Simulated scan of single mutants.
Amino acid sequence: MADKDSQIVIAGAGSIGCYAGGCLAVAGRKVRFLCRPNIEARLRAGGLRVSDLDGRDRLLDAGAIHATTDPAEALTDASVVLVTVKSGATEEMGGLIAAHAPPDAVIVSLQNGVDNVGRLQALVGSRWVLAGMVAFNVVQKNGGESLHVHRATEGAALIESGVSGLAELLDVAGFSVQAHADMRAVLWGKLLFNLNNALVALSGLPLATELADRRWRLILARQIDEALAVLRAASITPGRIGGLRPSLLPKILRLPDWLFRLVARRMLMVDPEARASMWDDLERGRPTEIAEFQGKIMRLAADTGTPVPLTQRIMRLVEAAEANEAGSPQLSPEAVLDGIGR
């Protein structure tokens, strides 16, 4: 059972982790940040500022933040561990949890992709691992002494039900958390919309600008059509996306710009600076999570014999951009479609 005295550890304090942990700490929860040296240095020097689309703008002083790079210090007395590392670091974090967290600690994966719970469970023994999903985008803002993280889109976090009091512990102002009984469907639903991350990365456009352009939405709609065909062949049923049945999303994306703006107002409620984390990874020369999105669809496509030419094209373009280490290639929609037809 989780309660307000539970020690919460943010295992991987990047943008999402700092935002969630900051909201929890402001609300009086006991929070510890396990982070990289550069993040620890910024938190210790200037504190943590958390803001959001709803107008909240709050500052945690450096003295009120417990940040460390030492996994033993962070995890030894953890009650709840929120895993917020990129998927490529799942095994490393799972090993640290196995080595240092108490045997009764509850682990919650707030990561992208659909496989991380199983990967963590394989490493952490009898500890309870729950699936989670963050439905919003967080950006780091420049300027000022504090590390500033900003929730740039609407949305809540969902966690797998089963641990009494856990959702109530985590549900605080700015970080809405709800329990859900079918997280597998939720994660597959989110993966469908996460196929757009690659388009933001390849275009270099802010998310709101990219979604407002029907040429890019047509490419996303085609990707989702391919993915839905793969999931049907694999007998996987994705959950609703923003309240919509997944089969409706491509139809909405294909609407003319003026009608899309009317029908999809909530989808366009995005901070003008918001981009996908995949764009940020390209700009910083880091590996992306393309293998967790387009790559997952391609692996299932190979297993089921389902053609996915556009998905394959986009994955190869992102892999080429990673290899070039020159940031976003800033491609046009026509360049993305080159060679596979309209």
Results as ranks from 00 to 15, higher is better:
Asp281Ile: 09
Glu289Ile: 09
Pro287Asp: 08
Trp258Asp: 10
Leu249Phe: 05
Arg275Lys: 14
Glu283Phe: 01
Met278Leu: 14
Ala274His: 02
Phe293Arg: 01
Pro246His: 01
Pro272Val: 04
Leu255Thr: 04
Arg265Gln: 14
Arg245Asp: 13
Arg266Pro: 00
Thr288Met: 06
Met269Ile: 01
Val263Ile: 13
Ala264Pro: 04
Ala276Ser: 15
Asp280Thr: 14
Arg284Gln: 14
Arg266Tyr: 01
Pro272Met: 08
Leu259Asn: 09
Leu244Ile: 11
Ser277Asn: 06
Asp280Glu: 15
Ser247Leu: 11
Phe293Glu: 13
Ala274Val: 06
Ala291Ser: 10
Glu289Leu: 11
Leu262Phe: 03
Arg254Gly: 06
Pro272Gly: 06
Leu253Met: 07
Leu262Met: 09
Leu248Glu: 06
Leu253Ala: 05
Met269Val: 05
Arg254Ala: 15
Pro250Ser: 03
Lys251His: 05
Arg286His: 07
Gly285Leu: 04
Ile290Trp: 01
Thr288Pro: 08
Glu283Lys: 05
Asp280His: 14
Thr288Asp: 07
Trp258Gly: 02
Asp271Leu: 07
Pro250Met: 03
Leu249Asn: 01
Ala274Asp: 08
Leu262Pro: 01
Val263Gly: 06
Arg254Thr: 12
Asp257Leu: 00
Arg265Tyr: 11
Leu282Cys: 08
Pro256Lys: 10
Leu262Lys: 14
Arg275Gln: 07
Leu255Trp: 11
Asp271Asn: 14
Arg254Phe: 02
Glu292Tyr: 03
Glu283Val: 03
Gly285Asp: 10
Ala291Gln: 12
Leu255Gly: 11
Arg286Thr: 02
Glu289Lys: 12
Ser247Gly: 11
Val270Trp: 01
Gly285Asn: 12
Glu273Asp: 15
Ala291Met: 02
Pro256Ile: 12
Trp279Lys: 13
Arg266Met: 00
Pro256Cys: 01
Leu249Asp: 00
Asp281Arg: 07
Met278Ala: 06
Asp257Ile: 00
Pro246Thr: 06
Ala274Phe: 00
Leu282Pro: 08
Met269Asp: 12
Thr288Gly: 06
Val270Tyr: 04
Leu244Trp: 10
Asp281Tyr: 07
Glu289Gly: 10
Pro272Arg: 04
Pro256Thr: 10
Ala291Tyr: 03
Phe293Lys: 00
Glu283Asn: 14
Trp258Pro: 00
Leu268Phe: 05
Met267Ser: 11
Trp258Cys: 02
Leu268Cys: 05
Leu282Lys: 12
Leu268Arg: 00
Val270Met: 09
Leu255Phe: 08
Lys251Gly: 12
Arg265Asn: 08
